[in-house]
Design a protein around this nucleic acid. Sequence first.
DNA 1: TAGATAATTAAGCGAATGTCTAAATTAAAA
DNA 2: TTTTAATTTAGACATTCGCTTAATTATCTA
Lengths: 97, 97
Amino acid sequence: MDTKFKAINDPTRREILQFLVNGPQNAGQIASQFDMSKPSISHHLDLLKQAKLIQADKKGQFIEYKLDKTGFEVIHAWFKTFSTYFEFPKPKIRIEI
Amino acid sequence: MDTKFKAINDPTRREILQFLVNGPQNAGQIASQFDMSKPSISHHLDLLKQAKLIQADKKGQFIEYKLDKTGFEVIHAWFKTFSTYFEFPKPKIRIEI
DNA sequence: TAGATAATTAAGCGAATGTCTAAATTAAAA
DNA sequence: TTTTAATTTAGACATTCGCTTAATTATCTA
């Protein structure tokens, strides 16, 4: 729990997550998006992985990262308490008979 | 944005938010829930207020705090990208004709 | 096998964070 | 008005965080 909130606390890590919405990317491709050393990005990826917000897949000498549902579900569950409290608008549906 | 994620990063602050689901409480009532000095809690309340996750209402010599929809909506919007990506289950409905 | 490439691990450092005690502010009560 | 109570502000200090460079591990290719 703590790990997940810590993971999304950092702006770079949130950007990494956003970037991965485009689909799986290897560490080098991710690092190239940021004006930051590769070891730093590697560290961020490690924290995101620990939080189960991303998954790592070794493909030869590359490591491919993608979003992991597991961690997001936990955050979602936490947030539910408050969205219920405020009754956030549900998606609208159309019914045809 | 940054302020909001920082706010929910701390476990004590998340507990304060949970506690306020029960309804508005003044600073002393909140502080009494935690094994921590009042100034520390006061500081946490300040950060939550800056993040617009809570609102402060002065009532005489007391200050009443309650959850603030504003900040939660912003977090909700951020999260939407990912819940869409994973297609989290929508609430089920029953239709009778 | 030797060299190059992808990525991580290690070590070090300044900045930010969370906590405390003490002091200050504000409002109620005696 | 003096005192008490609720709360915040200020200052200090240890811990955590994010970054960098240097070294290490693992894999591919010539």
